[in-house]
Design a protein around this nucleic acid. Sequence first.
RNA 1: GCAGAUGUGGCGGAACAGGUAGACGCAAGGGACUUAAAAUCCCUCGGGCAUUCAAACGCCCGUGCCGGUUCGAUUCCGGCCAUCUGCACCA
Length: 800
Amino acid sequence: MTKKYDFKSIEKKWQTIWEQEKLFDTTIDKTKKKFFGLIEFPYPSGAGLHVGHPRSFTAMDIISRKRRMQGYNVLFPIGFDAFGLPTERYAIKAGIHPAVATKQNIENFTRQLKSMGFSFNWGGVINTTDPRYYKWTQWMFIQMFKAGLAYKGEETISWCPECKIGIANEELENGHCERCGSEVVKKKKSAWILKMQSYSDKLIEGLKSVDFPENIKKMQIDWIGKSTGSEIDFEIKDTNEKLKIFTTRPDTIFGATYMVISPEHPLIEKLSSKIKNLDAVKDYQSKASKKSDFERTQLQKNKTGVKIEGLVVINPFNKKEIPIYTSDYVLMGYGTGAIMAVPAHDDRDYEFAKKFNIPMIEVIAGGNINETAYTKDGPHINSEFLNGLNNEEAINKINTEIEKLGIGKQSVKYKMTDWVFTRQRYWGEPIPMVYCEKCGWVPLDEKDLPLTLPDVSDYMPTDEGLSPLAKATDWVNTTCPHCGGPAKRETDTMPTWAGSSWYYLRYMDPHNDKEFASKEALNYWGQVDWYEGGTEHVTRHLLYSRFWHKALYDMGLVPYDEPYKKRSVHGMILAENGEKMSKSKGNVVNPDTIVSQYGADTLRIYEMFIGPFDQAAAWSTNSMIGIYRFLNRVFDLTEKVKDIPMTQKDTQIIHQTIKDVSERIEEMKFNTAVSALMICSNYMGEKEAIPKTMMETFTKLLSPFAPHISDEMWEILGHNNRLAYENWPQYDEKALQTTSVNIVVSVNGKKRFETEIPTNLSEEETKEKILSLENVKEYIKGKNVKKVIVVPNKLVNLVI
RNA sequence: GCAGAUGUGGCGGAACAGGUAGACGCAAGGGACUUAAAAUCCCUCGGGCAUUCAAACGCCCGUGCCGGUUCGAUUCCGGCCAUCUGCACCA
């Protein structure tokens, strides 16, 4: 009787069994080695799962399933990162509560994820919008506040006029809001801020101890943007004020022909009485403030500015007077908001100087400053005591002089700013802080956590940009936890990145209502062993959560100073034409369609087969049919299984397959792992009868990729247990050996023919064997063999 | 502009401590089965030349372009070109 591969009933059957048996539910088991595999938990949008999700999820599911079979106690958890603007928007539009929308979306995601057969720890699902979860997000915020890591500041923030929300630098795309695409403007707002910049060095340093791809490390290092330079004070002539500038090239100080201060620089206000063209300066200031970040970047190549008449600084080394300009190419938010401009040796200064006809002084030889700024190394000229020195020597020398004169010091600056931890939105964690006229900002008592979101009738921010929570006056008005007097609650909520900054810790102990996770769980599960996710989160989520974790570590709350031991990244799944999949383009593929047409196992393997895991890949429903055929053939193989011993060739093939599949999973070369399985199944397909042990081993190797069909086949092969906890096959190096090998014979590097000889002949033996061949005699007849190159078991090259 | 990555058949892609280029799969063409179609199975499948009834065999070219190192280069080195990703006036 031929049994057909009926994926629908097979997948349903096994998903039900796994669920009933709670096969993948995880608890601490100290008798086993642990493995903590993590995928970035999804944002449960109304659109449902995207075909991009299964690429990453299947990869980690394969690794987790393999680890389980290798005897590890595996934690492979799932949860939902559910606070955020899209849900709030949807809720406003549909007129339902965001919590209701979230619940529906999570249900839909859960159904979809279960239909894919992922071996998640379904007993420990978390949801960042659950008060039992965000209680601990709030608790951690309070700990940071107490440790001095969170403060309320007045900050110039990027403001999206469309979303009415403050935007962190990380959420900007070319000066546009990454959500709605509007141009962002500058706005002063009071905001909660986390002192992330103070962790810059630790975040760079910590990368040494973790296994991240090099380019990911580099992206984080570049994002943090550490640069070492010097701060130098320039006296402002006829005043008591000094202009403090920051430069990485103090050695070029003799080439400074003008200074630039940012339009927001406080000195303009302070010395306004001395400025002769105050109107022009003020006018420029107001124009600059109205420019969006987008305009500023667009105008990169077209510098603007105004000379500040009436103010000059004195070069401390040659006492020359230097004029001051204000220009928005100098940013108040970086360094000291002021620079010394050396047009001969800096591209930006060069451009500005050309436009404003400012003279240049060449101080490093080697370039041609008539054409372009020279920014490379060379001997210093026109620089008094620095003449003749190279860049490094000159920098050291000038720094010594600067310190001797007491006019500055070496200093380190970072591009990465502190984390603006405030959103004027409803659908986020309430910030557990209260403002009291007498006591200032006071955190809630921990026993009063969680501080839950109040019910409000409308989720729009106020026109002044206050969070909708401000409208819930009953909720806002409270008493001070410190003095008991009247006080008001903070009405801003936390950004989306809050809940995701520590979720992996909650996974270790998801139901604990005494602590965010017990010490026992934190110690047992330790670091995340392998964290799989997308590149788009490298400078946002990944950096935030590393910071958050390090802060917890410094407070003694977690036992390791880095959360993730190893990180891998996957490429995006693109639409068939190579474009990004997006709702607006209408080219989104819904995994549900594929699962119902071909089955989850086919979709899983297809996504692994589609191309190199770390590279982008274009979807092709057409190509998926090949995987479906493969699984059908594999299923049919069970009919040919007999209780017979394996031949030597069988042994060699199956051991080669064990080796290839095992190694390639570890290297995330899933596409070639699948092809190794195909080669093995093609081989078995040609046989009259397949030895049972061979088929069993093959089924085990297939199971992480296609768990449903594998458990079904395992049952057909006469087993009544689950493959998930069977032993992962081991290969034997000796079994891989063949008795004869093909040797390529080439002449002068060109392949001529191949021939079979016994395996493992020595170089001498191979040479003899080959030279005695009739073919070879033909080729070398009448010619002079200069050299014979032998690569044992591979090739012989005759040089004639 | 800076940094990183990638360029291989009609397509997705294999093979890189230098050693048979095109594994595996898709598409295409031919055949078998069928009344027919689908499904399935078998064969062919980078380009060119010559030979042949036909096939095999044979020879030449071919891994973005130009050069170099080497007995031998998709792989290493130098210089270009193109595409993608990240960052972007950070002094």
